[in-house]
């Protein structure tokens, strides 16, 4: 290649092309290999947990409380806790996130306050989740006095996934063409009426995708919940609204939010860190259940986004 006449020798050029093509093919193979490793990890995880945990998959595993005996231990308090914490998280993060997204896209003027909010949201996404746990420990648990309750955990995770919901909302809103707003306002709708009857409904699928991805992340989060001091051994359920309590009084509608709790990831952590290998089986089975929850949620979100991209044409 260095000599001037080299370019005119067909054999050398052919060799050069062949070598280039070989390198391309080798790199392709390397790319596929790397992708394959990722795929293999997902597959190995699911398969290993399914096989190892298989002997625990019966109704009792879902309906029993944690126990000192591995074969009798179940995940009842864990999955109920995860569900309730997710409920609080969704009830907090969805209205806040959608409202914030709406404000930034439809209302905010271009000024420094808006800029601060935007930069802030980007940076919050990079804050380690355990730092949210410390925030919650200082603010929710002690300053507000919520204690180690479902409420504290739900609010913590809501703050954690807020940036995800906001970004998804903004992207969904931005995809709506200006003519929709103009049409709505031209017939006399106010800004809020335009948002309520047009922008939010049309952005809904996109928002929903973001919410599901956010909740899938929240349901697997362990560190912030451990940090607020959630207990690892819980052998009771939060009080059902209006049920009779042990002391004879009736539970209020929202008593459950102040109840101590445990969640799936904490139960898995607890079982994984025990030296007794019998609990590994429990950890595998619970891990499999959690994986199925998370992967299903993600799959729904991906499918939703795929449908969205295909169907909507303005």
């Amino acid at each position: 290649m260095s000599s001037e006449n080299a370019g005119f020798d067909p054999a050398r050029i052919r060799a050069l092309i062949a070598r280039g093509k070989l390198k391309d093919a080798l790199f392709s193979a390397l790319g596929i290999l790397c992708l394959g490793i990722g795929l293999l990890v997902i597959f190995a995880l699911v398969a290993d947990m399914a096989v190892k945990g298989a002997e625990r998959f019966n109704l009792g595993f879902f309906l029993n409380f944690a126990s000192r005996r591995a074969t009798q231990a179940g995940i009842l308090s864990a999955w109920v806790g995860s569900l309730l914490v997710m409920l609080v998280t969704a009830m907090t993060a969805v209205p806040l996130g959608v409202a914030a997204g709406l404000y930034l896209e439809e209302y905010a003027r271009r000024n420094w306050i808006t800029e601060v909010i935007e930069i802030n949201i980007t940076n919050l996404a990079a804050v380690p989740s355990i730092v949210y746990g410390l925030l919650a420990l200082g603010i929710f648990v002690y300053a507000f006095g919520f204690g180690q309750s479902i409420l504290s955990a739900g609010l913590t995770l809501a703050l954690l996934i807020l940036p995800i919901v906001i970004v998804a909302t903004r992207e969904a809103i931005r995809a709506i063409p200006a003519m929709i707003r103009e049409g709505s306002m031209a017939v006399g709708a106010t800004r809020w009426q335009t948002c309520r009857y047009h922008i939010v409904p049309y952005a809904m699928p996109g928002i929903l995708t973001g919410v599901i991805i956010g909740l899938a992340r929240a349901i697997g989060e362990t560190a912030p919940i451990i940090t607020i001091g959630a207990l690892t051994f819980i052998a009771f359920l939060p009080p059902v609204p209006f049920s009779e309590l042990a002391d004879g009084t009736r539970a209020g509608l929202f008593d459950w939010v102040m109840s101590p709790f445990t969640v799936m990831p904490i139960q898995i952590f607890n079982w994984t860190s025990r030296p007794d290998p019998a609990f590994e089986v429990n950890a595998a089975a619970a891990g499999f259940v959690l994986m199925v929850m998370v992967l299903t949620m993600n799959a729904i979100a991906i499918w939703l986004r795929y449908r969205l991209r295909k169907n909507i044409k303005w």
Partner: peptide, 21 residues
């Protein structure tokens, strides 16, 4: 999407994977 699924796996499950596999 497969990569996204990998990114969505809870870290506690990865912890289990690291320790026991």
């Amino acid at each position: 999407p497969i990569l996204e699924l990998l990114g969505g796996i809870p870290t506690i499950v990865f912890g289990y994977f690291a320790l026991l596999i």
